[in-house]
Amino acid sequence: MAAGGDHGSPDSYRSPLASRYASPEMCFVFSDRYKFRTWRQLWLWLAEAEQTLGLPITDEQIQEMKSNLENIDFKMAAEEEKRLRHDVMAHVHTFGHCCPKAAGIIHLGATSCYVGDNTDLIILRNALDLLLPKLARVISRLADFAKERASLPTLGFTHFQPAQLTTVGKRCCLWIQDLCMDLQNLKRVRDDLRFRGVKGTTGTQASFLQLFEGDDHKVEQLDKMVTEKAGFKRAFIITGQTYTRKVDIEVLSVLASLGASVHKICTDIRLLANLKEMEEPFEKQQIGSSAMPYKRNPMRSERCCSLARHLMTLVMDPLQTASVQWFERTLDDSANRRICLAEAFLTADTILNTLQNISEGLVVYPKVIERRIRQELPFMATENIIMAMVKAGGSRQDCHEKIRVLSQQAASVVKQEGGDNDLIERIQVDAYFSPIHSQLDHLLDPSSFTGRASQQVQRFLEEEVYPLLKPYESVMKVKAELCL
């Protein structure tokens, strides 16, 4: 049975990233139509530049190519590739079939990587351009969430054990800070992308030097003109047959890092959902379990974690691919890159769409948070109580021993009897502590235990987050809708 299948058929496997999760716009960027249309555009740009620099290419040939950029006979191309065992030459023939007058000058002087690699770089750039505003929107939604809850005390956790208090907004800023680093890295790697350009079979530009009869300047002009037509500021000066596969490492490393950030955020949300302090959106008709109707599973956060793990592992592909590119190139890269580049971007696209949807509907339960604080705060307040007693004339050592005994009794009630923490009640009825009984409410005010959390939130948002989001103001209103 021949390899390949009808990918629109229910009898043929289709990647869930495309069929179930990723956005239509990201799927289109990695589609065959987008790819092969870009090949034709690159052939047109090459012909236009070659004509401008004096090669015998007519206006009629150029116009014929322009008129057929979208006229792609995919069936013919597939048949040609089956016959020739070469995808680029299959599309040269297919393009030439609908451009008979231009057929002889299509791909003039070029090698397969002229269309293959340059198209990949265009796709990487455009895919990054799709991700950047999506990530900015996630940051914006979380920034709104953090600002609104900047002063809401909550129990902090280290080692997932109760620690000092923080605020809900401050905790959210930990998430935002990681995503801001990801946004900066995505922008950097996007701006650092260079075009492969017009380089020939081993990167020496020998074929173009021959076409222009040894004119170095025209060869350099050709490279520059096509690079500018493709919208790049610069091209690699040095290439082998391909652009260095280190570029793929750079791009997928940034995406993998984004995956790590999203995994951490969504894990926190899942843990908070278990504590009943916070939940992701839950639709009115949504079913959490087929057997347990009360369940409210954090399905979206779980999906993000599941896909983020996949995204983090994909960076190993370009690392290994770059390491086995012998001399000017081997074909070890080809099949692998067809999979890992598309999957990385479709996965990143999915987790950003999902995280935006989550961040637009996060639900906080202040009463649950308050109750958990009441359970733990008495123990945390013991040092403040000791200091207040010393100020009232008591002995630190005597007070410490009193607190120690009462704390152990209260802990026994919590752990052995399943009761509430009654340390404060014990202190309130103990005559030894009568000098500070009137101060206990103040000493137990949760806001006095959150330090500068709310001020940190305000400063972080104003100095770091809002300036970073400013270039994306025009796209901030787009909502994230999930079908599944």
Rank of each mutant, 00 (worst) to 15 (best):
F379W: 09
Y13E: 14
E64V: 09
N357S: 12
S12W: 01
Q416P: 09
S454C: 06
M476Q: 15
D120R: 11
I265N: 07
A47I: 00
E328F: 00
I57S: 01
F28C: 07
L130R: 12
R85P: 00
G4K: 14
A2Q: 13
G451T: 04
R329N: 06
L53W: 03
K284P: 07
L255K: 02
R426H: 12
L222R: 02
L131K: 10
R137F: 15
T321D: 02
V29N: 15
Y432M: 12
R337L: 02
L130A: 15
S301P: 06
I269K: 00
I385Q: 05
V364F: 01
L255T: 11
L314K: 06
R337W: 02
R188F: 15
T202R: 01
L209T: 08
E417F: 08
L362Y: 04
P100H: 15
R459C: 11
E417L: 08
K477E: 15
A2L: 13
E473P: 14
Y472E: 15
G169N: 08
T382C: 10
I339L: 10
D445T: 13
S359Y: 06
V390I: 04
G156Y: 01
S407I: 00
G231P: 01
E425A: 12
L423M: 13
N118M: 03
A102R: 01
S334L: 04
Q325A: 08
A206C: 02
G169L: 05
L275H: 02
I436H: 03
I106E: 03
S395G: 08
M476P: 15
H93Q: 07
H7L: 11
A348D: 04
F157Q: 05
C180K: 12
K284N: 13
K75F: 06
R404T: 06
R337I: 00
A146L: 00
S323D: 01
E360M: 11
A78H: 04
D333I: 00
S9I: 14
A110C: 13
G96P: 08
I373A: 08
R300F: 02
P378L: 04
C340P: 00
D6N: 10
G231Q: 10
V363A: 05
V138N: 08
E417C: 14
E376D: 15
L69I: 13
E279S: 06
G8L: 12
P435N: 15
F95I: 01
V457H: 03
Q458N: 12
L222H: 01
Q286C: 02
L362V: 08
E277K: 02
E213K: 13
D215W: 09
R149T: 10
Y432G: 10
Q63W: 06
N118R: 01
C340Q: 00
R85S: 02
P366F: 02
F30C: 14
A3D: 15
I339F: 08
S334Y: 01
E481N: 14
T330G: 06
I176H: 02
Q205T: 08
I122G: 01
F145V: 08
E425K: 10
D317E: 04
H7E: 06
L331W: 00
F208W: 04
P318I: 01
V254S: 07
E277R: 05
C305R: 03
T330H: 01
L468P: 09
S261H: 05
S151T: 11
T166Y: 00
C173Y: 02
T38D: 01
V405E: 15
F232C: 03
K229W: 04
V368F: 07
Y13I: 13
H86A: 03
E79S: 07
L443W: 03
G203C: 00
M316G: 05
R372E: 07
E343V: 01
K229H: 14
D182I: 00
G393L: 09
T239Y: 00
E283M: 13
S261Y: 02
S67L: 06
R83F: 09
D441P: 15
S257Y: 06
L152G: 05
E360F: 07
P100I: 05
I424A: 11
V429R: 09
F157H: 11
T111Y: 00
L132I: 07
C399P: 05
E417W: 11
T201G: 02
D268H: 13
L44D: 02
F460M: 11
A322V: 12
S253D: 04
D332V: 00
T313L: 10
K66W: 09
I105G: 04
A381K: 06
E481C: 14
C266K: 05
Q356A: 13
S301R: 00
V262Q: 04
I105F: 11
C340V: 14
E81F: 00
L346K: 07
S207V: 12
V251S: 11
I436G: 06
Q408M: 05
H437K: 11
M380F: 15
V262N: 08
L469P: 08
F195V: 07
T347P: 06
V405S: 07
E148L: 06
A146W: 01
R396V: 09
F282L: 05
G231W: 07
N274M: 10
N297W: 04
L142G: 03
A3E: 11
S301M: 14
S395D: 12
I57Q: 00
K479C: 12
K35P: 03
Y294V: 03
D120W: 11
S454K: 14
H159T: 00
R194E: 10
C172G: 11
Q41T: 10
T450Y: 10
E50F: 03
R33H: 02
G116C: 14
I123P: 04
D192I: 12
G54H: 10
N118D: 11
D32N: 09
R459I: 15
M387P: 03
A260G: 10
S9T: 09
Q285R: 07
R20G: 05
K147V: 11
P16Q: 15
Q439N: 15
V254K: 08
A291G: 02
D223M: 05
L469V: 13
L124D: 03
L53M: 08
I424F: 05
R33Y: 09
D6A: 14
T111Q: 03
L272Q: 06
S261W: 03
K233G: 10
A143Q: 12
D129P: 00
H86R: 01
Q286E: 01
R125G: 09
G214E: 11
V138H: 10
E220G: 11
G54R: 05
V138Y: 03
N118K: 00
H159D: 00
A273T: 06
C305T: 14
G96E: 11
C340G: 09
T202Y: 02
P56F: 08
I176A: 09
S412Y: 11
Q161P: 00
L124Q: 05
E473T: 12
L469R: 06
Q210V: 07
E425S: 12
R234F: 06
S261P: 02
S15Y: 06
E80F: 07
G5V: 11
G451V: 03
N353I: 11
I403G: 02
K134H: 13
G197M: 02
N71W: 12
S67H: 05
F30E: 02
G288W: 01
M278A: 04
T166I: 12
I369N: 15
G104Y: 09
A348L: 09
K402S: 10
G418K: 00
T330V: 09
G200W: 01
P318H: 00
T201I: 01
I424D: 08
N185H: 09
Y114F: 06
H263P: 02
C399E: 05
D332K: 01
T94A: 13
Q325S: 12
Q439F: 07
I265R: 02
V324M: 07
D223V: 05
K229A: 02
R190V: 10
F449E: 08
S9Q: 14
Y13K: 08
N118Q: 00
T58H: 01
D420V: 00
L275E: 08
V457T: 15
L406P: 02
V414R: 04
A136D: 04
A150P: 04
A308G: 06
Q164P: 01
T347D: 12
A110W: 02
R190S: 13
D216C: 04
V138E: 15
E425C: 10
S289Q: 04
V247C: 15
I106M: 03
Q221A: 10
A291Y: 06
E250K: 10
S395L: 07
L311H: 02
D317N: 08
R245I: 01
